[in-house]
Design a protein around this nucleic acid. Sequence first.
DNA 1: ATACATGCAAATACTTTGCATGGCG
DNA 2: CGCCATGCAAAGTATTTGCATGTAT
Lengths: 146, 146
Amino acid sequence: MSNYVEELINSIAQELNNTLTVQRRHILTALIKNRDKHLSAEDIYNLVKSDYESIGIATVYRSLDLFKNNGVVSKINIDDIFKYEFIFQEKEKHHHLICKKCGAIIDVQDLLVDNLSQKLRIEKGFECFDSYVSIKGYCAKCSEDE
Amino acid sequence: MSNYVEELINSIAQELNNTLTVQRRHILTALIKNRDKHLSAEDIYNLVKSDYESIGIATVYRSLDLFKNNGVVSKINIDDIFKYEFIFQEKEKHHHLICKKCGAIIDVQDLLVDNLSQKLRIEKGFECFDSYVSIKGYCAKCSEDE
DNA sequence: ATACATGCAAATACTTTGCATGGCG
DNA sequence: CGCCATGCAAAGTATTTGCATGTAT
């Protein structure tokens, strides 16, 4: 495993009061290594199983829930299926373009107005700490094919 | 039922080639009357059941799917549960502020930059036709209580 | 010894499907 | 008649839970 991934995981371990078991480390590793993909609970289960045979699916769900509650992963819904993704920076926005034709999921950032938090606080009194944006349409490739 | 709701349903019937059965009318009515709420499939089932006893849950799911595919309702995911809402205007955006404390769901519009579609087309070649935004945080009331 | 995490299997949603029936052109 | 929508029940998925066991302080 790369030093980078290892360091990242160790810093998360500290955040979680060093409660990172072997299983949880495997799950995090799978998420970090596949940060460009969006994994379902079962995807993660299978990935971990390939080098930690005895993992149970319940542990995967329990761990993902723990990570979600600690802001380590985000649980998103793409076309009626739940997927999990590692959150690299606290403030990173998780915005997706979803192609309705080929199913491609394109990550984008900074779609929202910059001062959104401030605007919401002033106009609505709403204190936001997480946002999720999904935009459906046709990706570049599929638009051409039209 | 108000004339308004009835007219609305009739216009949808036309869009769907007049395939609006009694059951589907009931489901639509429930959705329209509760347009300020976000209903789960079961919520809808129970609402319809109260004045159309024989409705089956499978019909609810099948109808909601039909409506979704015809752009009549949108299926959104709020805190890991699927909810359905009637779409009043073709171009209306489905943007929500979700309070993590009291669970309030506040609809907002025009959160995104105005020229988003154009920007996406130019920068990413992505042709968008629908967007969904969910922002989590504390609503005005719960922020105060902090 | 205590507390908590795990794996397994069973239980629980939630949603979809097969099929016989029914309504409508 | 032929077609499609329906209700019911059964089957599928996806996820959660109970519990005995294991592991680490």
